[in-house]
Design a protein around this nucleic acid. Structure first.
Lengths: 128, 128
DNA sequence: CGGTATCCGGTGGGATACTG
DNA sequence: CAGTATCCCACCGGATACCG
């Protein structure tokens, strides 16, 4: 086997810090926020329109979390009426490639996985 | 700009099915389970030793979830005393590459992100 | 050995109401 | 417009006890 064999290659272990980071960056709404902000900087309510299913509270929390992690930048544009713009940072852009890889994987294997789920659920009606 | 520019490239949107899939596969313990099973097939208690922080319940739930999604396979080896082996499936192996990309990203940018967090927390003591 | 059942506290996130 | 505050509940995951 070559050392590129995924079964034998040495791999990074998942430390608590890695875990926390992924939790902060891959939570329920972050990916959609990232996707939107990678297309263009957006105002708060533009994001709400772009992601209709998110609540005010969750969008606000997601943005603050991403801001704290240096993934997005919050920019106050004017003060009356208040205008705020969110944009992706250079650090945030580096997230694109691995996240896209993940999304591509999910998209490419969704069919196989749904088939596996059906097979599993079929086989294990757990009595009834 | 080339069409490889992350700011202009067309991207997959994140559907609820994608979200659910990622939630099932990237949850708290799945990555460590995957990492361990990619090295070698393992018994239940071997996994507990390899991942000391996981509880029985969570490990069991993680394994059943991954099994249902076709990522790992559960194999009963003998019946008295019970021996069970878990191993990664071919489908599960396809997860390696995108997950490694993510882990590499996390590892490579952890320092910058921790710096961003310190800067943010410093600037926003939010009273006290 | 390899789990399941039960309890239980903390957290995520929606709905709603209010504010600068 | 861009949030925060409050309430509330569902779910996650740990601890413990029990089972085939």
């Amino acid at each position: 086997m070559a050392d590129t064999d995924p079964g034998t290659a040495e791999r990074l272990d998942v430390t608590p810090a890695h875990r926390e980071l992924l939790d902060q960056v891959l939570d329920k709404w972050s990916l959609e926020v990232l996707n939107t902000l990678c297309e263009r900087p957006s105002r708060f309510n533009e994001l709400r329109q772009a992601i209709p299913a998110v609540s005010q509270k969750s969008l606000s929390a997601t943005l603050r979390r991403l801001e704290r992690n240096g993934i997005v930048e919050r920019r106050v544009l004017s003060s009356r009426p208040v205008a705020v713009e969110y944009r992706i940072t250079p650090l945030g852009k580096t997230l694109r490639s691995p996240v896209d890889a993940l999304l591509d994987w999910a998209d490419g294997h969704l069919g196989a996985i749904e088939a596996a789920r059906r097979a599993y659920d079929e086989a294990e009606p757990t009595a009834s």
